[in-house]
Simulated scan of single mutants.
Amino acid sequence: MKKKIIRVTTVPASLRGLLYGQLKFMSAHYNVIAISSNDEYNLLKMVSERENVPTVAIDMTRKITPIKDLISVYKLYKLFKKEKPFIVHSHTPKAGTLSMIAAKFAGVPHRLHTIAGLPLLVATGKKRWLLNTVEKITYAAASMIYPNSHGLYDIILEEKFTTKNKLKVIAHGSSNGIDVDHFSLNHFSNTTENKALKQKLNIAETDFVFIYVGRLVADKGIKELLEAFNTISKTHKDAKLLLVGDFETDLDPLDEKTLEIKDTNPQIISTGWATDVRPYFAIANVLAFPSYREGFPNVVMQAGAMELPAIVTNINGCNEIIIEGENGCIIPVRDANALHDAMLKIYNKTFVYDKAKCRELIVKRYQRQVIWDGLLQEYKNLENK
């Protein structure tokens, strides 16, 4: 019989997006069960149908909610005792803490947690102390921790969250890699469709398009991005900034000044959330991604596979995907002036890059099968322990 593996994320959108295709691949080798919270869009059902694995709904919050968290731990514990999995493997911060604790008490032999970012890095004071403590508890309950970048690996050791013998980066990094066949300009060679999208968005054929893809929140550097672009747009009327993503008003909202720039600058175009971001990459010239913190950002890999250079901040993940002067440039964090200068260099063509190299570097290091095979080998190695 196949051994059983349970994969856990806090919200089903992470199962659907972060682990796209991976659960189905692993189900050929193991009995896979996916766990996440209930949601109003039936995403868990969609994941089950697409990945061909059973799913179980156990509610988990993304905030600090002690009573609800204890209830979630208990429900996870009961499920783990019933299913007796060989591995529990969690992603996202809250799912990691709750499922690692529950799996430890349930006697699960292999408790794995993938780190795809550390929100605590932008916290201060008592909140930082609390988040550090929770992180240490998670790592203590886990039997193995997989940072999805070498930068995160180093940060975890610097913060003394755990020891080196519990840490490993799979392949070259990333939680799931990307489908380089899906993210390819070959699907967008029909210029009629590209022109139609530009016309819909009020982008002229001669316009230079900066693009940002992701959540529109403070710690993604949206304040600096809009400030830098707002200055550029005053003297460069053919520059456009395309924002593809949703606002998140609960956890990390943008300030009023940033929102005012977005609402009053006609050269800034906000599309909202998009199921397929490829058409937007296809009409853009460069990705601007000035995030404060990341694990291993899919957006930067996706843009590269679509032959776009990227302006990124000098943070883990981003500074591993981008090689200065080859497929983009790296700037300091929270530095609107540096971002402004980098955007102008690419606009003025004083920064030279190779479109083919942008894609080549992604295909070589981060295509999805490389990550899947690396993780599968890790699971296989655990069978002998």
Rank of each mutant, 00 (worst) to 15 (best):
F289K: 03
L251A: 13
L226M: 10
F281I: 06
T264Q: 05
A288G: 02
L251Y: 14
E260V: 07
I268R: 09
D246S: 15
D252I: 10
T264I: 11
E248W: 11
D255M: 08
Q267L: 10
T249R: 10
P253M: 07
L254P: 14
S233K: 01
H236Q: 10
S233E: 00
A196T: 07
A274S: 13
S291I: 15
G214M: 13
N265I: 02
E248R: 12
P253I: 07
A204C: 03
E205Y: 09
Y292G: 08
Q267E: 02
D263Q: 14
S233G: 12
K198C: 07
K195Y: 06
L197V: 05
P266F: 05
E227L: 15
N202P: 01
L197T: 08
H236S: 00
L197G: 05
L287E: 07
V217G: 10
L201C: 11
A204G: 04
L197Y: 08
P253W: 09
A282Q: 00
I261E: 01
L216T: 13
T235P: 01
L242T: 12
V209W: 01
A274F: 13
F281P: 02
E248F: 13
V217C: 14
D246A: 14
I211F: 09
E256A: 15
E256V: 14
T206V: 03
A204L: 05
A218E: 13
V217Q: 15
F247I: 10
P266W: 02
A239P: 00
T249H: 08
K262T: 04
K223I: 02
S270C: 04
G245I: 06
T275W: 12
F208A: 04
L201W: 06
E205M: 06
I232W: 03
K237I: 01
I261F: 13
S270H: 12
K195S: 15
T275M: 14
V209P: 01
Y292Q: 06
